[in-house]
Design a protein around this nucleic acid. Structure first.
Length: 118
DNA sequence: AAACTGACTTCTC
DNA sequence: GGAGAAGCCAGTT
């Protein structure tokens, strides 16, 4: 849970209209090669992706962190994961709605990747 | 503690 | 570019 906790914190810090790659999150979390573990944490945790993520209320402290998992994409901006309802399509829709640029079915990381604070 | 699993990444064919 | 295989980590059983 500790690692996931860090992941949550990081993912929640992703600004609107930006996306981060699993590798990036994993690196910020402390382990570059933990990209897999990051996704695993998302899946295993009982969070519910909201359709309209205003995320105004930073529920820091809540036991159910609403992590904007849709802002986490693959290494190359490709939509991986999101086994939930709608799959990557819903993910893409949400991202596009937030202003994330898309190239076909992949995120335009050049313009929409989150430049995290190192 | 060991084995299995998973929303990953990268290399090779 | 698609398909297959190996390597990586954390969590669950």
């Amino acid at each position: 849970m500790t690692f996931c906790d860090r992941v949550y914190k990081i993912v929640k810090k992703i600004p609107k209209g930006k996306v981060a790659t699993y590798s990036q999150v994993s690196r910020l979390a402390g382990n570059v090669k933990a990209a897999r573990a990051v996704g695993m944490c998302m899946r295993t945790n009982p969070f519910v992706p909201v359709s309209d993520p205003a995320f105004s209320g930073d529920d820091t402290g809540c036991h159910t962190p609403r992590v904007p998992c849709h802002r986490v994409v693959g290494s190359d901006g490709r939509l991986v994961g999101y086994s939930g309802k709608g799959g990557v399509s819903a993910k893409k829709s949400m991202l596009a709605k937030e202003g994330v640029l898309f190239i076909k079915d992949t995120v335009d990381l050049v313009h929409s990747q989150w430049h995290s604070i190192f």
